[in-house]
C-alpha cells in the first residue's frame, strides 16, 4: 500500500491510478454544501477568498462536535454529487484533490482530467474509524455554519481509494 505525504503535487497525483488504495498524510480542508455555495459566490463577485485553495485537498465532510478529550468527533465523507455544481470554479481556483463518497457526473470527470486533479473515496459511513487518523482540527472560516464551517484537518495515514484519477479513469464502470 502506497504511503503519500502532502502537499499533493502533480507528480504524486500522476503516479496514482483509479482503484488504488493509499494512506495519505497531510492537510485536508473540510467543505460541504453551504461552504461551497459561499466560496463560489465570493469567486463570482471577484472577492478575496478566506483561504488559498491552490494545491489544496477539499474533504466533503461535516464532523460532529468534538467530544471532550478528543481531537475530533465522527468525521466521515458526505455525498460528493451534491458538490458537483460547485466543483468547476473550485478546480479553476487551484484545488488539486477532492475527498468524498460516491459517483460524480461525466462533466466532473472531464474537469478532473482537464485540471490534472484527482478524486478520492474515503471509507463511507466510518466516521468513528476515520477520527483515529486525524491529528489536529482547526477552524479556518465560516464559523456561523457550525458543522459546515471550513476546518483544516491534519491527517496521518488516512485511508483513501482513488475514485477518479488525473486521466479521467473512474473506479465506477458507469457514471451518471
Amino acid at each position: 500500500m502506497k504511503k503519500i505525504n502532502g502537499p499533493l503535487d502533480k507528480k504524486n497525483i500522476q503516479g496514482l491510478k483509479a482503484g488504488e488504495l493509499i494512506l495519505f498524510s497531510g492537510t485536508f480542508y473540510t467543505a460541504r454544501d453551504q461552504a461551497h455555495k459561499i466560496l463560489v459566490e465570493l469567486m463570482g463577485k471577484g472577492k478575496k477568498l478566506p483561504l488559498d485553495l491552490k494545491n489544496q485537498i477539499i474533504y466533503y465532510c461535516g464532523p460532529t462536535k468534538t467530544p471532550p478529550g478528543r481531537v475530533i468527533g465522527s468525521c466521515g465523507p458526505t455525498t460528493s454529487a451534491r458538490m458537483d455544481s460547485f466543483t468547476k470554479p473550485l478546480l479553476e481556483n487551484g484545488i488539486s484533490a477532492m475527498v468524498g463518497k460516491g459517483r460524480r457526473t461525466k462533466s466532473i470527470i472531464r474537469l478532473i482530467k482537464k485540471h490534472r486533479a484527482i478524486y478520492f473515496l474515503a471509507p463511507a459511513g466510518c466516521g468513528a474509524l476515520l477520527s483515529k487518523f486525524i491529528l489536529a482540527k482547526k477552524l479556518i472560516c465560516f464559523r456561523h455554519l457550525g458543522p459546515e464551517a471550513i476546518y483544516s484537518l491534519k491527517v496521518k495515514e488516512f485511508p483513501l481509494i482513488v475514485g477518479i484519477d488525473w486521466q479521467g479513469r473512474s473506479i465506477y464502470e458507469k457514471e451518471t
Binding site: 478528543r70 466516521g127 468513528a128
Partner: peptide, 9 residues
C-alpha cells in the same frame, strides 16, 4: 470510545 458511528447523527 462512545462516539458517533457516523458524523451524520
Amino acid at each position: 470510545e462512545k462516539i458517533a458511528l457516523c458524523q451524520d447523527t
